[in-house]
Amino acid sequence: MQTDRMRTELVSEPSSPGLPNEDFASVGLAASGQGGALVLLDGVTPPRGASGCRHSVPWFTAHLGGALTDLTVSLLDVPLTEALSRAIAATADAHAVTCDLSHPRTPQATVVLARWSPEAVEYLVLSDSALLLESPDGTVTARLDDRLARLPRSALASAARVDAELRNKEGGFFTAAADPAVAARAVTGVLPRGEVRALATLTDGAARWVETFGEGDWADCFRVVRKQGARWLVDRVRELERADTGRRFLGRAKTHDDATVVYAEL
């Protein structure tokens, strides 16, 4: 998409053809033409077994993402934490009668929000998707919620332990599920508009280029997306996944994950 003020690129691919994509991404432009917002969600795939909910993860990310797109673009004076809180509450209301929203595996997602105006760039990151910001001098800064990455791998070996002790728990990590209060746990910030030239955001399926395969750092990743495109990055991740037949890099992780990249020149 291109206007007189900005250019955006969005690529999203499911883990395998024929499977639903549990990611959600959108870019909304303010009606005034001055500013806009970006929403990125990575739905959490539950393990086999009960989740307390009759709805799928794509249903959840579509509802939460749609609400966030509306709120971040239409209510420019509402802080991003408040927008996320309202969107979680609205999504919960949509299935509270039919589903057990207290279940630890009720549908949930990671969240990245960015909103820009002529004066400022606001951002919010919750869980393990990544936001990259480029300054006018070319410096790239990663804004991350690294609480999940800081946990010892041994603590994550059992899904039951994760659900009982770590998921949406103090000392663990947080995702957007059914509790609006989780919005206050997000990593947030505001920068002067003149300090951000472009931004990119990636779900962890695309961020494997950095985090799993070590093809470069976050600055390298941003430059690849800018110069070669979001499609190239996702295709390269797929090549690396297919080549890792000995599981040297992937280990116990699934071979492919939903992969989404959004790039915006402001």
Rank of each mutant, 00 (worst) to 15 (best):
D128A: 03
A159L: 07
L132G: 01
A62R: 13
T98I: 09
G65P: 11
A149R: 09
N168T: 07
E122N: 04
A160G: 03
T175K: 08
F173Q: 02
P104H: 10
Q108V: 11
G66W: 08
F173C: 04
A120G: 00
T61I: 13
H95I: 03
R147V: 01
P107Y: 13
D145T: 00
A96I: 09
R167T: 07
L75Y: 10
R150S: 10
A157M: 11
A181C: 12
G171L: 07
P152F: 09
E122A: 07
S85V: 13
S129A: 15
V111E: 12
A92H: 11
H95G: 02
T81P: 09
R143W: 01
S102M: 03
V97S: 13
A164V: 02
F60M: 14
A184W: 00
R147W: 01
A177W: 06
A176V: 04
D100H: 10
L126K: 00
S158H: 09
V78M: 15
L133N: 01
L166V: 07
R185H: 15
R86A: 15
R115Q: 05
P118I: 06
A186G: 02
A178M: 12
P192Y: 04
R161S: 08
L68D: 09
T61Q: 09
E165D: 14
T188F: 05
L148N: 00
D70K: 13
G171H: 05
L156E: 05
A181W: 01
D77V: 14
A92C: 06
A142C: 01
L144F: 00
P136I: 05
A183D: 07
T110Y: 09
S129D: 02
E119L: 07
R167A: 12
D163A: 14
T141M: 02
S102C: 02
A164Q: 12
E195Y: 07
D100I: 05
L124V: 04
L84M: 15
W116C: 05
T61S: 10
S129K: 00
R147K: 06
P180Q: 11
S154W: 02
S158N: 10
A120K: 08
L126W: 00
L126N: 00
A164K: 05
V125N: 01
H95Y: 07
D128C: 07
H103G: 05
D145N: 01
V187Q: 13
L68N: 09
L156H: 03
V112E: 11
L156M: 13
I88Q: 10
A83F: 08
L84P: 15
C99S: 15
L191F: 02
A184L: 05
V162A: 11
P107K: 11
P136G: 12
S158I: 01
V162E: 14
D137G: 07
L166F: 12
G66E: 05
Q108K: 15
S127E: 12
L166I: 02
A92E: 14
